[in-house]
Amino acid sequence: MNRWPRLRAALAYALLLAFTLLFVAPVLFMLVGSLKPDDLVLAEAGTMRAFFPDTISLGNYRAVFERVPFGLYLASSLIINGLIVGLGLLVNAFAGYALARLRWWGREAMLALVLAVLVIPFEAIAIPLFYQLSWIGWRDDWLVQAIPFVANPLAIFLFYSFFLGLPRELEEAARVDGASVLRTFFAIVVPNAKPAFASVAIVLFLFHWGMYLWPLLMTTSEAVRPLPLGIANFHTLPPLQWGDIMAFGVLMVLPVLILFVVFQRWFVRGVASTGVKG
């Protein structure tokens, strides 16, 4: 009697495990590859050795720092993303709040516009934007890689729907208590919208950490180039060493992973609450 449900559960878990392995495999391949001698990465790619190495070395990691200015790329990436996230939280929260709470002419049209802009892929406007900025002579620094991405329609929408769900009376009470609109926003709204700020921070960071096309268009000096251009740099540096590229990849993923683990609690809550109220 009892055997059939158990068998079914076992089958279900086997299936789940198979799919998990399928999706985790590339990440595992990268991690293992980064720890293997360079010549073995491709040689063992088709075998189980790709996932279970017999020798482990940190040589590839040393090579990453010796062959390319990894620290420089990392610094650029952190600065660019720090600007995007920091300014993005402020600008998008203001925009979301104005849409959700303030009364102004054209508010509804603006909301519709924000939603419409959501569907425009960046690649579609990258070239016109490139010409526009080149024309005013602005290129090849950190700011030009960050400023175009500060205002983000998805972030505005996340803030907008979260603010809509906050009880309006809190803000009215603050106004009656003597707070200005700006003061009300910072003293009352922001502390009660931490989940929204956390989700937007993560969304903005994730979107732009791997950005490649725009930095490629806008930068020429190594000093301001972010990590994704750094990893591409390997292809121009013979000999092509896959182990080094894997190690670079691991180092590039690490900050994102740390950020996600630290903010995971808020992120999940933020998504849950914006989901319910939006």
Partner: peptide, 19 residues
């Protein structure tokens, strides 16, 4: 504006600042 009227208000749901 509300801040210049020197009034105080008690709301139906109290509107206490949760944080």
């Amino acid at each position: 504006g509300p801040r210049e009227r020197n009034i105080a208000m008690v709301f139906q749901n109290y509107a206490l600042y949760p944080h």
